[in-house]
């Protein structure tokens, strides 16, 4: 209950405080992951795509993942280049900050690109040693978008052809074993 009240207070304060009061420097997520302990308890901003799920939990918090890699700006389905594994962090924010955002990123979508500002929690004692960003403000930099994807006709045709071949061969071998 106390957490819910605290979260609501934070949201109200955020709305009342002038914008510049929250100004913090952006931290690169890859750097944040390698120097996670150094940022413990600091107010930081990270920029990236919200991806996966929005987990609206009964306690009023919403959990999601923020990825900050090349795929957020140059998705593979839009001819972006491969650049290794995803680079992301878990974030939790009051539900009110998340519920009106575009769907999170997945196969069909690029999630909203945001700047999330909040307190970096490293091995949080209250949450069983988890590491995440407790978000206070979310600024939408770019709306999410839906990707176009379609089947490669050559792959589809080859697939249908081979399935038919397999069925014919299967029928033939059945006939033989019946003999």
């Amino acid at each position: 209950m106390m957490r819910r009240i605290a979260a609501a207070l934070i949201v109200v304060l955020e709305l009342l405080l002038p914008r510049c009061a929250m100004a913090t420097t952006d931290v690169d997520v890859e750097h944040l992951l390698t120097e996670a302990a150094a940022y413990e308890g600091q107010t930081i901003s990270v920029v990236g795509e919200l991806i996966g799920d929005y987990g609206f939990r009964p306690d009023g918090w919403t959990w999601t993942q923020l990825n900050s890699d090349s795929y957020t700006t140059a998705p593979l389905l839009e001819d972006g280049d491969l650049s290794g594994s995803n680079v992301g962090i878990g974030i939790r924010a009051p539900a009110s900050l998340i519920q009106d955002l575009d769907p999170p990123g997945d196969y069909h979508h690029r999630g909203p690109l945001v700047r999330a500002t909040g307190t970096w929690k490293y091995h949080d004692q209250d949450r069983g040693g988890e590491t995440y960003l407790e978000v206070v403000t979310i600024e939408v930099l770019e709306l999410g978008k839906r990707f176009d994807e379609s089947a490669d006709p050559i792959v589809a045709a080859a697939g249908v052809f081979l399935v038919l071949v397999a069925m014919w061969l299967g029928y033939r071998s059945r006939l033989r074993s019946a003999d």
């Binding site: 089947a151 490669d152 081979l162 071949v165």
Partner: peptide, 16 residues
């Protein structure tokens, strides 16, 4: 759609 086609191809190869 794209994975549908590629699964069809895979099944065809396995089966054939």
């Amino acid at each position: 759609s794209a994975p549908t086609a590629s699964f069809l191809l895979m099944i065809g190869i396995f089966g054939a």
